[in-house]
């Protein structure tokens, strides 16, 4: 179980103090799929970095299974939007997965079976000798997923992983991810600014307000069967509800940009 209670995050820099998060509380159950949704600059990636252990909290607590999160841990693996940066371009598809097994000190005898299993899960087993530069954007994200799953974490933390993909590939990736989630039972925390993406994926959506001092303004339990029919009136209603939650924030954030 991932839990943040009353979390604040302050960034100090030469240009002054920035209050990124203020009073964020959220509990994520094991095996749950939660989307953090909000306009850009709302601190959702900061919250994800705190859950990963890359950033410390300035106030409040962040815990995983009732233990304070103080550093990155192989139980919680982060997937990045820019897979080209996150993957190792000098290693092939297969070697990228092997890298995780190697640093995780998985016994060598288990490597081939593990690599096979997860490359097959993301349908990359026929591309195992290719290098990341030879893969498409969607394939790179699938490789990132396979590499993460291979070290058998409990939680996948995904930072806008499909934002840079074209619409068709993104929809395909949603199907792939939901299928993997169902088969593996991982907890997934998924950051996005795309309302439709959040609705089609999540169990619950945490809607965040624009910074500074952003916080979770609404927790929405979707409670619809998957795969979700985006033409369902309930989906449209949810979409409008979330959009109206975000609109004043978007206006505010664009005003902020104009003032500066």
């Amino acid at each position: 179980m991932l839990r943040v209670t009353d979390v604040c995050k302050v960034f100090e820099s030469a240009r002054g103090t920035y209050f990124a998060l203020d009073g964020v509380s959220l509990t994520i159950r094991d095996g749950e799929f939660v989307c953090l949704l909000g306009p850009s600059g709302c601190g959702k990636s900061t919250l994800l970095n705190i859950l990963a252990g890359f950033e410390s909290v300035s106030g409040g607590t962040a815990t995983f299974n009732n233990t304070a999160i103080t550093r990155a841990d192989r139980e919680r693996v982060m997937l990045f939007q820019d897979a080209g940066s996150a993957l190792l371009p000098w290693l092939s598809t297969e070697e990228n997965v092997r890298f995780g097994l190697r640093v995780r000190k998985v016994p060598k005898v288990d490597w081939p079976a593990t690599i096979d299993k997860y490359l097959r899960m993301v349908s990359l087993d026929s591309h195992r000798a290719k290098f990341p530069a030879e893969l498409s954007g969607g394939m790179r994200q699938r490789l990132q997923i396979a590499r993460a799953l291979a070290v058998e974490p409990k939680v996948l933390l995904m930072d806008e992983p499909f934002a840079a993909l074209d619409a068709l590939t993104r929809r395909h990736m949603h199907t792939v991810l939901l299928d993997i989630w169902r088969r593996t039972g991982k907890t997934i925390v998924f950051v996005t600014h795309d309302i439709a993406e959040a609705i089609s994926l999540a169990d619950r959506i945490a809607v965040m307000s624009t910074g500074p001092r952003s916080t979770i303004t609404r927790l929405i339990d979707i409670g619809l069967q998957r795969p979700r029919d985006m033409t369902n009136p309930k989906v449209a209603q949810l979409f409008n509800e979330i959009e109206s939650l975000l609109t004043p924030d978007v206006l505010r954030s664009s005003e902020r940009l104009e003032v500066h």
Partner: peptide, 22 residues
């Protein structure tokens, strides 16, 4: 890239491995 270093870190790489292998 920071993303590459962080990705390796949560896969389980220690500081020395991040330095030498990333």
């Amino acid at each position: 890239p920071i993303a590459r270093q962080r990705a390796a870190e949560c896969l389980g790489a220690n500081r020395f491995q991040i330095f030498m292998l990333i």
